[in-house]
Design a protein around this nucleic acid. Structure first.
Lengths: 340, 340
DNA sequence: ATGAAAGCGCTAACAG
DNA sequence: CTGTTAGCGCTTTCAT
């Protein structure tokens, strides 16, 4: 069943059917209505691949994320999908699991599918996949790479102000030794985050101590490993910032398992503000990264690029704000190590 | 850049290029290699929409889920996506948020995109969207509708054995009054689950008491509401089965907030075994629904249907098993209501 | 082993 | 206002 069939039944040409479907004003209302009725009666659905072939555009945006298992991403996907749907776009979603090879293949699949744009939230250091998109003139928006180009925009997270709020909050509670459990080594995003932390610490007049800065993996297990290491130190920090909420939650679990009270003995602050923060015990103090805003920024960036294919990309910013819950409290009086 | 361009550079025809790309044996190895080199040198990526137009198939499967915010689904999506990718299929994912109107539009978009098959994990009572897929000969697999047809398979969850394990576990702990917080009213899946519960209770020789059976919404808030109602009862159940883990977690939160000890005063069992179960305190006893198996079953069902477009669908089953953690314990001695 | 050509369904330029 | 037609890029039969 194609437009020609509809045309035949309605006694018009396929061009007219096309016009009706696309809401062209160049059709007499009665004709349009007649065609419309046939479409409805036959449940006709146009074949999008023909349109895609003709236009070279598919009304589909690609969304590439590292790990759908991190609740931050489902929440973001949800916002992004809603925006796409209300703009008559479909979403091709793919997960990389932090594997460059997977990213490579994913991008290839997206090129084949002629996606109109790609939001890449899983940019490793590698720039090859990005070049491959640029080469094919596919608008691209990255998260927190802080590098833009022709057809490539970036949405960065303004870490500093949030980190400063967090550090100030801890300082006011009497904390002086603040540790950090970060993300995987070798990702630009991880570096930006530690940098933000370092600057915030220094601007607060505290000492940045690399001993207290550990890598993680953006998952619970990374937070667990980090916390284990911290608890084994002779002199340990009295508060910890984690690179994301999962990391913080992992850290809290280990603390609890070892009988270290939170926030009595160690305060913990996360990042993202996933729903879990409220569910976990104690409820996690965190820096909220607004998903709706982020999704909007990503979409807008792509939309602009799609409309001005020759334009240079834009750098935009989303900032984070402190949400105080129960995982932060007054610093333990300054002893070597804590004991109940 | 299309196949003709490649052909020109390699000094062959576009038909040969097509053969090379599709690995046809009808090409002399040297020719193939020459073409291959040109393809690599130019970074050529074929235009999938032309293939889709030609074949009427897009190598894309649709996946429709109700709520990506429920961690069960990301975990499932992950498995499903992995299976698809290793079968050279793309995934078009969409969320319905339990809204029939959204489902309707989603299915239309999938028909336009010529998806090869759809896994519908969000089937409300409505059958209209299903019919629309059947009408367009799109293989479909549903979750737990327990109704199959030409081109429509179903993967059901075998609730009874899991529920029986759960009830037996509780009975052994001395529980006699077991309550249930279910899903949204009016969904077939909700009904199958309560039925499983009821049968399990009766087969264990306990009394099924409708007073203790409350509806929910598959989210935390539903569990909270249910638990609030239960805690307000003069005689209340000493244990509760929840229709999924989020519901159970909501119930636990309310219990904690009201100072009701878990499992000391009320035992709780969830369903799904999402990662959260281990993170929450106390760790949640639950019925594990194996995602990998479920994803496999969904894919296999679609794969079979896609290969035998005229075949009748199959009914398959996935079962659940009890995972005992810390949210279940001995029943409180039988008093009217519990007090610390 | 390779090439020529038709056709998948839709759209837009052009003609009327 | 409506119809005719070419062409988007790929695959595949049919020729050679």
């Amino acid at each position: 069943m194609d437009m020609r069939d509809i045309a035949k039944i309605a006694g018009v040409s396929s061009a007219t059917v096309s016009r009706v479907i696309n809401g062209s004003p160049l059709v007499r209302p009665e004709t349009a209505e007649r065609v419309q009725r046939v479409i409805e009666k036959t449940n006709f659905v146009p074949n999008g691949s023909a349109t895609t072939l003709k236009y070279g555009r598919s009304s589909t945006f690609g969304l590439i994320i590292p790990d759908i298992t991190n609740p931050f991403f489902p929440e973001l996907i949800r916002c992004f999908e809603a925006i796409l749907v209300s703009n008559d776009q479909d979403m091709l979603m793919a997960t990389t699991d932090f594997q460059p090879a997977k990213l490579q293949r994913t991008i290839r699949r997206m090129l084949i599918r002629k996606v109109d744009a790609v939001a890449l939230l899983a940019a490793e250091i590698e720039t090859q996949p990005i070049e491959s998109l640029m080469h094919n003139r596919v608008p691209l928006v990255t998260l927190d790479r802080r590098s833009i180009a022709r057809g490539v925009s970036d949405v960065a997270v303004e870490y500093l102000s949030g980190m400063k709020q967090a550090v100030e909050h801890l300082k006011r509670l009497g904390h002086r030794r603040i540790g950090y459990i970060g993300g995987s080594l070798g990702l630009t995003i991880s570096e930006h985050r530690v940098e933000g932390f370092r600057t915030a610490i220094e601007e607060a007049g505290l000492k940045y101590d690399p001993k207290f800065v550990l890598p993680g993996n953006y998952r619970i297990s990374g937070g667990e490993a980090g916390m284990r290491e911290i608890l084994a130190m002779k002199t340990r920090p009295t508060a910890i910032l984690a690179t994301n909420d999962l990391t913080a939650i992992g850290a809290m679990r280990v603390a609890r398992a070892q009988g270290v009270g939170i926030p009595e003995e160690i305060s913990i602050i996360g990042f993202d503000d996933i729903e879990l923060c409220e569910i976990v015990y104690p409820a996690l103090t965190t820096l909220r990264l607004p998903r709706q805003e982020l999704a909007q920024a990503l979409f807008r960036a792509l939309d602009v690029l799609a409309k001005h294919p020759h334009g240079r990309g834009h750098q935009s910013m989303v900032s984070s704000t402190l949400v105080i819950r129960d995982s932060t409290g007054p610093a333990l009086r300054d002893r070597k190590s804590a004991s109940k």
